[in-house]
Nucleic acid binder design. Structure first.
Length: 896
RNA sequence: GCCGGGAUGGCGGAACAGGCAGACGCAGGGGACUUAAAAUCCCCCGACCGUAAUGGUCGUGCGGGUUCGAUUCCCGCUCCCGGCACCA
């Protein structure tokens, strides 16, 4: 007997990784037939220092899919890179004095090593980092194309200012009124900023959500809500005493126009300066200043008080000619709709509350429809009649001139038509989505290729002026933008000469834009760059970002995998970019991701105590001992240091602050990459949260070790034997049972992979089959079939071990022999046994079972059931009221 | 408040398409081997009743309903998680 080698992942894993890399197993050509190609991508990481468990889970899922598809014969594009611009690099510079570039590229080198040690099958030749000049400078070129297309503009308005980062944020980056990155408060500041016109694509972004069947509904619904399209009307109100000025309101309820008793306007609305009389100017200005000083969250949040200020202005209702007061109100937003709202207290909850506070009229113009059946409407109408509430539901028009008596839903279009005839209103659509504020007052980001020229003003650079490179000699002292403070960069060209702009009347002095781009820019097109990573066309005389042919070949990405936290951030930006790239001629593909898989987060139990200052004090798992009762239930925990109890908290997403993190590096060192991968896939379904559990990791390790040992001890018995290739009918006993199980297992694994990436159940099925093999004495050819099947089914998940065992069993140790062997196929005719062990229910309760031939069907089966002695015994002489027989499944006798 | 998602043993989770609830794994209990430990192997493991069974009753968040039969479908709730939150 040959030697039984011990399972040693630390030896076999790096060996296979080297072999795959040397053979170029994971590289792919760009000119193969598209229907035999598959593009699988995981959201690339920010190089923060080292991998965390969330990365390991995300990338293991993607890698298992990539390896599975390769075994199915697809040419798989599976790239990896680095989202390497961003704030932590500047933070490191401030705290540790390391240059952002040095810090970033050191981190990349370390994390690349970690990814390789996990055995992820990336096409490393396509790797790039977003901060590489080759990527960032091509992005500047795309930016200029967007400028030409009219998608970039600069404007001054109230912006979200992060007090933590000292820079502006896009709306998508403000979570609960706080900065998405630092959690520090966000306030409103009036500043000139650069914007990308994402709203130009609002309709397409929204409409196409109904055409993305491969996306989770949760993400699509979030995006629809974020875009927030609503149809309504713009209606013009004349300003009393200013015949040349009209205030245009936006409303979704033109049917309530006759009920308007006042009009509200955003405190920072541009027209206010023009129309507010001197008598009220001081009060209005003071109110505007007060509103501006509060954050949008505090101003609009749940508990925010509705505040207003009379402007001294009256406006004229275009239908009635009646004059109503104009109020500046804190809940009206300048950049939604028109910044002016007609207020109808009788039919809007917010206006109702405001009218109460300021003693304004309530005028009912819609009543409950006759015969209204809806209970909620009846109840609200009743409350309205007693003066307690607005009535916001549809109904019948009253006190509305010629529209009286109409159903309110019909009146909407009629009133709009009436207004349109008189040029006092028009149907319109507004969106909640606002343009993407792009500029950041930061160093470690991509330059915005604009200059401020002495006479020509703000002008974009021409393609031949690119690239704009960041200076390296910058000072990080934590105050302000290092680029702005650089002595010469903004006013020098790349050769160090004073920067000039060729204006129409000769050269002008010029100064560069010192804001840099939001780092969500880079992640908006990286998946397209992977398709043509080496694209450089010298003949264009400038940077050519994308090779349209190859982008069109690989996109859309067949499967994109990442966390759901990017539902309205990255995933909306990337969809917008793809459309803009199409409209600027870089591709014809308008949606970037065909199928989206959002994996759950990785969490761990937390341990804490309430410290003296009332804040929780968190403890690492290794500092705590957990006490269990006789059933294994956790009853308490104590701190090892002092033996005193600590609170066992719920499972929460791993975070450094809660001290519930696990370093994947330790996992790989202790158990190997295959165990880490198996655990990440086995412990929970992919889209659900995964709870870290070291015991369960050991279980996965135990399984792999057991499989290794089984294969090793079977090597001599199966050496030179061809796997069983006949039909299960030729076999008997354990051999027959195992071959059936083999086919059933392949079916389960294949279905799971194709349907919903059910790795956890696939692994469970493999474990079941393995357990059966260990328990029986099998024919060598059956054993060989079982082992070669198991190894192929598990190969996407535990690739190193499976390649090693495959080489052992088949004698073919070439780098791609297992992939060439392919994903196993099942034969449905070999799964089901000839007899069915029917469960017998009496009145719906399980009472016994009888074995009957599978070939028996219909009346023959009914007769066989009733004739069976065991069935008769269960019936105890009672008459059969009803006999339910489901072929192959179950038998239920309803007795009298 | 609105919109999603969820609730199954001590724990993570299975259950095709309405047909044997609890696969698989972990934890726990018992045993074998061992000087001992680790490792490995074997047995038990939803609750209650029962000496035991191939026994009985209950059991998939709660209350109803449809059905021969419901974790699965329908109606009404509770709780938990996530998103949005005066958007006119």
């Amino acid at each position: 007997m040959s030697d039984i080698r011990p399972y040693d992942p630390a030896a076999i894993e790096p060996a296979w990784q080297a072999r795959w890399e040397a053979a170029g197993c994971h590289e792919v050509a760009d000119d193969l037939p598209r229907e035999k190609c598959y593009y699988v991508l995981e959201m690339f990481p920010y190089p923060s220092g080292k991998l965390h468990m969330g990365h390991v889970r995300n990338y293991t899922i993607g890698d298992a899919v990539a390896r599975y598809q390769r075994m199915r014969g697809f040419h798989v594009l599976h790239p990896m890179g680095w989202d390497s611009f961003g704030l932590p690099a500047e933070q490191a510079a401030i705290e540790r004095g390391a240059h952002p570039k040095t810090w970033t590229y050191q981190n990349i080198a370390y994390m690349r090593g970690q990814l390789k040690r996990m055995g992820f099958s990336y096409a490393w030749s396509r790797e790039f980092a977003c901060s590489d000049p080759g990527y960032a400078e091509r992005e500047q070129r795309i930016f200029l194309d967007f400028v030409e297309r009219g998608l970039v503009y600069r404007k001054s308005s109230l912006v979200n200012w992060s007090t933590g980062l000292n820079c502006v944020l896009a709306n998508e980056q403000v979570i609960d009124g706080k900065c998405w990155r630092t959690g520090m408060p966000v306030i409103q500041k009036e500043l000139p900023q650069w914007y990308l016109r994402i709203t130009a694509y609002a309709d397409e972004l929204l409409d196409r959500t109904y055409d993305l069947p491969g996306w989770p509904d949760a993400v699509l619904i979030q995006q629809r809500h974020w875009i927030g399209r609503s149809g309504g009307a713009e209606i013009d109100f004349l300003v009393d005493g200013h015949p040349d000025v009209k205030l245009t309101v936006f409303t979704t309820r033109p049917d309530t126009l006759f009920g308007v008793t006042f009009v509200s306007i955003a405190p920072d609305h541009a027209l206010l300066d023009k129309i507010v009389p001197a008598s009220h100017r001081a009060a209005v200005d003071a109110f505007a200043a007060e509103v501006q000083a509060t954050s949008e969250h505090d101003r609009l949040g749940e508990d925010a008080e509705k505040k207003g200020c009379f402007t001294g202005v009256f406006v004229v209702n275009p239908t009635t000619g009646g004059k109503v007061p104009l109020y500046a109100a804190n809940f009206v937003l300048a950049d939604y709709g028109t910044g002016v709202v007609m207020a109808v207290p009788a039919h809007d909850h917010r206006d109702f509350a405001f009218a109460r506070t300021y003693g304004l009229d309530v005028r009912t113009v819609i009543r409950l429809a006759d015969g209204e059946a809806d209970a909620a409407r009846q109840a609200e109408w009743k409350r309205h009649q007693s003066g307690d509430s607005a009535y916001t539901e549809p109904g019948t028009m009253v006190d509305s001139a010629q529209f009286t008596g109409l159903p309110s839903e019909d009146a909407k279009a009629k009133i709009i038509a009436w207004l349109a005839e008189r040029r006092a209103g028009r149907a319109t659509t507004t969106y909640r989505l606002r343009d993407w504020c792009l500029s950041r007052q930061r160093y470690w980001g991509n330059a915005i290729p604009f200059v401020y020229a002495r006479d020509s003003g703000i002008v974009p650079l021409r393609p031949q002026d690119l690239p704009v490179r960041l200076p390296e000699d910058v000072v990080f002292d934590g105050t302000g933008n290092p680029l702005e403070k650089h002595p010469t960069w903004a006013t020098s060209d790349q050769s160090g000469q004073p920067l000039t702009w060729r204006g129409p009347n000769g050269p002008e002095s010029a100064r560069r834009e010192t804001d840099t781009m939001d780092t969500f820019m880079e992640s908006s097109w990286y998946f397209a760059r992977y398709a043509c990573h080496d694209n450089r066309r010298a003949d264009l005389g400038c940077l050519d970002p994308l090779d349209r042919k190859r982008v069109d070949h690989w996109l859309p990405v067949d499967l994109y995998i990442g966390g759901i936290e990017h539902a309205v951030l990255h995933l909306l930006y990337a969809r917008f970019f793809q459309k803009a790239l199409a409209d600027t001629g870089h591709t014809t593909v308008r949606e970037p991701f065909k199928r989206l898989l959002c994996q759950g987060m990785v969490g761990l139990e937390t341990y804490s105590r309430t410290a003296a200052d009332g804040k929780p004090q968190w403890f690492y798992p290794e500092e705590v001992e957990v006490v269990k009762d006789a059933k294994g239930k956790v009853v308490s925990a104590k701190l090892l240091a002092d033996g005193q109890p600590v609170n066992v908290g719920r499972v929460e997403k791993m975070s450094k602050s809660k001290r519930n993190t696990v370093d994947p590096q330790h996992l790989v060192e202790r158990y190997g990459a295959d165990t880490a991968r198996l655990f990440a896939l086995f412990a929970a379904p992919v889209e659900r949260d995964l709870e870290w559990n070291e015991d369960s990791v050991r279980g996965c390790s135990r399984y792999l070790k057991g499989l290794w040992t089984l294969a090793q001890t079977s090597r001599d018995k199966t050496a030179g034997v061809a796997p069983f290739a006949g039909h299960v009918r030729e076999l008997a006993g354990a051999d027959q049972q195992v071959v059936r199980k083999i086919h059933a297992t392949i079916k389960r694994a294949t279905d799971a992979m194709e349907k919903d990436f059910g790795f956890n159940t696939t692994i469970a099925a493999c474990m079941e089959l393995t357990n059966e093999l260990g328990a029986a004495e099998l024919r060598p050819d059956v054993l060989k079939l079982a082992l070669t099947t198991l190894i192929r089914l598990l190969a996407p998940m535990a690739p190193h071990l499976c390649h090693e065992l495959w080489a052992d069993l088949t004698g073919d140790g070439s780098a791609d022999s297992l992939v060439r062997a392919g994903w196993p196929a099942f034969d449905a005719s070999q799964i089901e046994a000839d007899t069915v062990d029917y469960p017998i229910q009496i009145n719906g309760k399980l009472r016994g079972r009888v074995a009957l031939a599978r070939t028996l069907t219909g009346k023959d089966l009914d007769a066989a059931v009733l004739a069976h002695a065991d069935v008769a015994a269960l019936m105890t002489g009672r008459p059969v009221k009803k006999l339910v027989v489901v072929h192959g499944k179950i038998i239920n006798l309803v007795l009298g």
